[in-house]
């Protein structure tokens, strides 16, 4: 949550806005949702059919904290990983999908 100032809103006021690591806080309609980011894709060329099957078809649908892929299609076009609470729509940290998750 890199935009919450001492006086400014934090928590639920930020919902439906997404912080793009490149472009800053933007309205969610600039983004495109692309699903679960908690799973790791099997290595390219992996012949493990079961692993691919699970990756492509099996998803948890957690109520609460979740990590999702979003693309800033109407901005820098970067794919992000976003923390979002699926029960309250509260959004949290985000980082570029091409980079490691922050600690």
């Amino acid at each position: 949550m890199n935009t919450g100032s001492a006086n400014g809103p934090t928590g639920n006021e930020r919902m439906l806005k997404i912080v793009c690591p490149n472009c800053g806080e933007r309205h969610y309609t600039e983004f495109r949702y692309a699903g679960d980011a908690t799973k790791s894709r099997p290595r390219h060329g992996s012949a493990d059919l079961r692993a691919w099957h699970d990756h492509v078809f099996l998803f948890d649908n957690p109520k609460g904290a979740h990590r999702e892929y979003w693309q800033h299609v109407l901005g820098c076009r970067q794919w992000l990983v976003l923390e979002r609470d699926t029960a309250t729509n509260t959004t949290g940290r985000s980082w570029l999908a091409s980079e490691a998750a922050p600690p």
Partner: peptide
């Protein structure tokens, strides 16, 4: 376009 960007940025950066 999104597909190519997704693969590049999430799988093969």
């Amino acid at each position: 376009m999104s597909h190519l960007e997704f693969l590049h940025q999430t799988a093969w950066p």
